[in-house]
Design a protein around this nucleic acid. Structure first.
Lengths: 97, 97
DNA sequence: CTAACGTGCAACCAGTCAGTTGCCATAATA
DNA sequence: TATTATGGCAACTGACTGGTTGCACGTTAG
C-alpha cells in the first residue's frame, strides 16, 4: 500500500488488534498461540491480525526454533501509549461531558 | 457503535475522509457540494464520508436554508493537527531512515 | 408559479475484511 | 522414528464499505 498513515489507522481501527497490541505491550513479547488464549477467536485469525500489525509497522517478529515471537516496534509503543491517553481523554470528554 | 476509539480510527483510515477533514480545516466550513469539487467522487459519496466523520465526532453540521455547512469539532481539529505531525514524523522516520 | 439548486434517502455493485475450517510443513520430545 | 506442538498457506463465507445511480423533498431565484 502507498498509504502508510491509512495503514496505521486501519490497523488500529479493529478492537481485536488493539487488544493484541496491548497484550504484547504488557508481556513484552508474545506468540500467536499465546495471544489466542486472550481472545475469543482462532489462532489463524490472530495470525492475520499480527500480519496486519506488522504491515503497518507496529509489531515485528522473529522466529526462535518452532515459535515466532512478536514484540512492539518503537512506533507500536508510541501508539500503545497514545491509545491509553486517548481512552483517558474520551473518559473525560464523553464520560463527564 | 460502542467503540468510539474504533470509530475515530476507522474514520481516519480512509484517505478521502482525511482529505475532507483537511479541506474543512482550511476553509473553516464547507458544504458537501463544495467538497465534491475537491475530490474525484460524487456528492453522495462525499455525503457518506461526512456522515461517517460526524458519527465519529470529528465534524458537525448545521443547516442554513437549503445548504448544510460542516465544520470541525474540537476533536476534529486536534486530529487534523495530529495528522500533520504524523505526516512530518513519517517523512522523517521513513524518508530519512 | 416555475425552474434551478442543494440535500437526503434507498437500492445496488464490487471489493475488502474478519473469521472459519482444512491441510501440510517444520521443530522438539519420548 | 513416531508423536506432539507451533506455524503457515489456501479456500470459503458473511458482513461491511466505498462508490454509484435514480429519485423525491425543501429552498431560493426569475
Amino acid at each position: 500500500m502507498t498509504d502508510p498513515i491509512g495503514q496505521v489507522f486501519s490497523a488500529l481501527a479493529d478492537p481485536s488488534r488493539r487488544h493484541v497490541l496491548g497484550v504484547i505491550a504488557d508481556r513484552g513479547t508474545a506468540t500467536a498461540t499465546e495471544l489466542t488464549g486472550e481472545l475469543p477467536i482462532t489462532r489463524q485469525a490472530v495470525a492475520k491480525h499480527l500480519a496486519t500489525l506488522a504491515d503497518a509497522g507496529l509489531v515485528e517478529s522473529s522466529r526462535q526454533g518452532r515459535e515466532t515471537r512478536y514484540r512492539l516496534t518503537a512506533t507500536g509503543e508510541e501508539w500503545d501509549d497514545r491509545l491509553d491517553a486517548l481512552r483517558a481523554h474520551l473518559d473525560r470528554t464523553r464520560g463527564a461531558g
